[in-house]
Write a protein that binds this DNA or RNA. Structure first.
Lengths: 217, 217, 217, 217
DNA sequence: CATGAATGAGGTTTCATTCAT
DNA sequence: TATGAATGAAACCTCATTCAT
């Protein structure tokens, strides 16, 4: 394994001084995980790299071996938060073949809301800090967010076509499905007092279905 | 030995160097109004006092005559944003005497959502920056937010008692009423593409009513 | 004198946070003067802003009120070093009307070399640090340097036209006139041991005249 | 208690971790050659060891096996640049026995200037970076530079003694011979536009001879 | 009352050098 | 012998706040 223009490589669009992509991925995961916790707790701007390094149990220099800038960390955190719940999109098509849109929607809501609950405060963080990203990064994030909504729209369309749903504004309703999930994270400080995540999923599912089902339950 | 440390009074919990409370209120309003616009546009941390002073058409020194710190400005902005839509709370009791809960709820939703729309990006700002407040300030803000929900709960209770509504979890539903209003501000970047504020109010009103009305429309 | 978009102004192509152009000029002169001495002594990269501020008897923040970056200081120093000896260019045309090119050339050499001697180590500094400038700045400096040579070319041309001089390559000879002046500064560590500036001027003048005069002295 | 601190020998005044002097010399040559190119292009301070290692096709650790510090590399580069054109000094004595001082001087100028042209930007680099050396190193370099001038002085003296030359200040004239050679490198950006190295040698040779020859050509 | 020049601690980031592998 | 991950001091620069005028 020769020359390779050592150092100053570029992994996943973000500068690194290592060429060992496995190590990069490993260290970045470490950094992102810790940074998420610290940033969510104290805020992005309030957390200094000094403090972050201490929290990571790394030296400052080490962080900058695997990451280009503080901004990049923010980007990676938000990107992960936005992309993680997307896994369900892949199985969506399959599900629609074998189950009724109503069942698929119920299933998706449960999957997505559970995902949001599991990511802890990441979703809240995304809501709060996306605006601090460079425009280019912000665009990427918003596109990813729009895709979530697109996926829900597909299910709603399927339901309308099969005569199960009646919906005035499909994109708006899809948006409601997604953002009512986010709200669990954003307003946990209040909602946690009035219900569990299970109850929340139940209630919000019925809120939505009540509004779109042709044959009311 | 001088008589007294000149200025340095305390108005509304925030330091000022003036003793003329009318002037303090006047200047603070000026500052808050301009600061809201600038902070919402550029973010709290990204805006320097230098930039803020320029945007206010004031000197830095002048701002510090009427305000104790940059944090104080943030607090005053958020306090205003949270309190402004609360006006409707006062007329709520009266309305319930003369109209059906359904009508009152419809009216409140329209009032509240229109208020959110009018405050521009303030609601979004509050979502993003509340965490930057000192804990003491943050508590005050969250209490005010909880009061909004309490007010909606009253209407829902009234509806349940009169047999118009059937609601599994009243606080959760009240929360939905309020936060679906906030979403218009927080997700305007997406929602603005699929509907107007009028349509949004209509759709969300029917979403909620569909779910709670005993006699479906 | 109203608004004026306080702060963050731009004076002479370089950022400043003051709007008082007289003060800017005064402070910048202070900074440049001290910085020249320190940079010449210790080198540009070896001198920290901390050290520079101490040498200026200012705080770091104060320097950054009147200057955009460390680079800007370098630029201003070099610009001054290049522009200062240029004063003679203006009187050049007049001189050529009333005196013989030979006399004018003698006079110019004396003026220019004396100027170089007076600027102390600035010329040396310019030779050493121009490459550290941003390309844009470097271009400006090199253009200014080329103008010096152009001015000397004029005199040589006049001499050739009047039949006083015979020169194979005028730009090269003009270049020699200028750079032999610079050499006094660049190699003072050696030349200072073998002659005074007066003798240097005398010897180099005769070196040049010997080579170009049609009637050898 | 280990036998000896492994490696850590000292070759040519500069630390190395190897004891194989042939290998040291081989590696150092590699390093110096590449470093010269990179430092000349980007500047000493602007080039990181990271970048240098990449340019050398070596690891950082390997460089530090054969060299004590970044400074040491600078010293070795400059030392080489100063010493390389010195080869002619050895044949100088012989030449003076069989040829006239005028011919020897002509020959030396051609040799020296051609040498400067061949070393590319090394001479310029030496001009710019010598000051960055530690005082001790700098002294060594300046002594070597003074020797060049001494060598030229010998030829001039010989010419004066034989009645071929008439020179007011021999060290100054010797200095001119050398530094007019350096100028080709330092001011190539300008001179390259007005003549070739061949023309430059011709013109400068006649500039000098015109001034010192007793019998003008 | 009003100004904005001045401060300097603390922010992010770089990079020469070391050392475990 | 050879590597490059890891370190952390120190660099440049920002900005909330003060205070003399």
């Amino acid at each position: 394994m020769k020359a390779q223009l050592a150092g100053n490589s570029n992994y996943d669009g973000i500068r690194s001084f290592s060429n060992d992509s496995e190590l990069i991925e490993f260290r970045r995961k470490e950094i992102i995980d810790k940074a998420t916790r610290v940033f969510v707790k104290n805020g992005f701007h309030q957390t200094s790299m000094h403090h972050l390094a201490a929290s990571c149990g790394m030296s400052i220099g080490m962080i900058y071996h695997y990451i280009g800038s503080k901004q990049d960390i923010l980007y990676l955190i938000i990107k992960e938060a936005v992309h993680r719940p997307n896994d369900w999109q892949q199985t969506l098509e399959d599900n629609l073949k074998y189950s009724s849109p109503t069942e698929v929607l119920k299933y998706l809501i449960r999957q997505y809301y559970t995902g949001v609950d599991n990511t802890g405060d990441n979703t809240l963080f995304t809501y709060q800090e996306t605006k601090n990203l460079d425009p280019e990064f912000r665009k990427t994030i918003m596109k990813a967010a729009a895709e979530d909504i697109k996926a829900i729209e597909k299910v709603l369309w399927a339901g309308v076509e099969k005569g199960e749903f009646k919906i005035a504004n499909i994109p708006l309703m899809a948006h409601n499905v997604i953002t009512l999930g986010h709200l669990w994270s954003v307003r946990k400080w209040f909602l946690g007092q009035v219900c569990t995540i299970e109850e929340y999923i139940e209630e919000q599912t019925s809120l939505i279905l009540n509004s779109i089902l042709v044959e009311k339950p």
